[in-house]
Amino acid sequence: MSAPADSPVSDTDRTDPPPPVDDDGDDDGGSGGGWWSASPTWAKAVVAGGLALLLVLVGVIGGIALGRSTAESYGPAEGSIDVGFLQDMTVHHGQAVEMAVWARTNTADPQVRQLAFDIESTQTAQVGRMEGWLTLWGQALSPPPGQYMAWMGMPTASMPGMASPEDLARLRAATGRELDVVFLQLMLRHHQGGLPMMQAGAADASVPAVRALAQSMVASQTAESATMTQMLAERGAAPLPAPTDPHAGMHGMHGGG
């Protein structure tokens, strides 16, 4: 609150030069001596502002440190549906992005290039979200070797639909129409193999955001699978045999189709 108009002006508000500082360094014990009282108002404001900024920075650093130290104390546990789904799907998406980048870069077909770009951009963004959640929860970004789909009750060394090293070599060696057909076949099978995991995540993940992500994957990849099937037919080719789902008999416990 501002002082009344007729109130005396305080020492700190005077425009006169400050009194000389006692060079003896003796503390007179009062409120009128020492360097602080002798400092002009603007200098006090600078010092106070600097201290306030320092406190803010200390709070920010402390908050970051606290967040890191407590990150592992919340979120789904290792081996949970949420963590297992995110870990497996991160790996699954990684190969899809790899194939999409190759096709987008090497195809001469505008439709194939657009499809590859859509898959690349969508799944790259989803990988970023999944890795972010796993990191926040203090979890590894991929499951232990041989433990894919363990969260669905049957650990396996390889997820359904994944392209083999020979498949990837065939994709890289192909050109022209053959490249387009091989890409569409491998990506369609890849989508089909990941569908049971996405359905299980959409049905049983405990974190609403994870369920929503899995549901969006089911919707987008089902639509893309229909598009790829049509594109293969237009190019006089047929899909590869659909991958075998090792958890076919367990869909009831996950709510999948």
Score class of each variant (00 low, 15 high):
Met152His: 04
Asp204Ala: 15
Gln126Lys: 04
Arg189Thr: 06
Ile119Gln: 11
Pro239Lys: 08
Leu134Met: 06
Arg235Phe: 11
Leu141Glu: 10
Met187Arg: 12
Leu184Glu: 02
Ala200Val: 05
Val207Leu: 08
Ala150Pro: 03
Ser142Val: 15
Met154Thr: 15
Thr124Tyr: 00
Ala173Asp: 12
His191Phe: 08
Gly161Asn: 03
Gly255Phe: 01
Gly255Pro: 11
Trp151Leu: 03
Ser142Ala: 14
Val181Ser: 08
Pro143Gln: 02
Gln185Arg: 09
Leu141Met: 12
Ala169Lys: 11
Thr124Ser: 07
Ala205Pro: 02
Gln199Asn: 08
Pro143Trp: 03
Ala150Asn: 09
Leu213Asn: 10
Gly256Asp: 00
Leu115Phe: 14
Gln230Lys: 13
Arg170Lys: 14
Gly153Tyr: 08
Val210Lys: 04
Ser216Cys: 02
Gly193Phe: 09
Ala173Glu: 05
Gly153Gln: 07
Gln230Arg: 14
Trp137Tyr: 02
Gly132His: 02
Val112Trp: 10
Gln139Thr: 04
Met231Phe: 05
Arg170Pro: 05
Trp133Pro: 08
Gly249Met: 00
Arg129Ile: 15
Gly146Asp: 03
Ala173Gly: 10
His191Ile: 06
Gly176Thr: 01
Gln185Cys: 06
Leu213Glu: 06
Tyr148Asn: 14
Ala173Met: 12
Pro155Glu: 12
Leu195Asn: 06
Gly176Asp: 05
Pro155Val: 01
Trp137Phe: 07
Trp151His: 05
Gly256Asn: 12
Met198Lys: 01
Leu186Glu: 05
Ala140Thr: 14
Gly146Leu: 00
Thr175Gln: 15
Leu195Val: 06
Gln230Trp: 01
Glu120Asn: 07
Thr244Trp: 02
Ala242Asp: 13
Pro246Ile: 12
Ser225Trp: 08
Leu188Ser: 01
Arg235Thr: 10
Thr175His: 09
Leu195Cys: 04
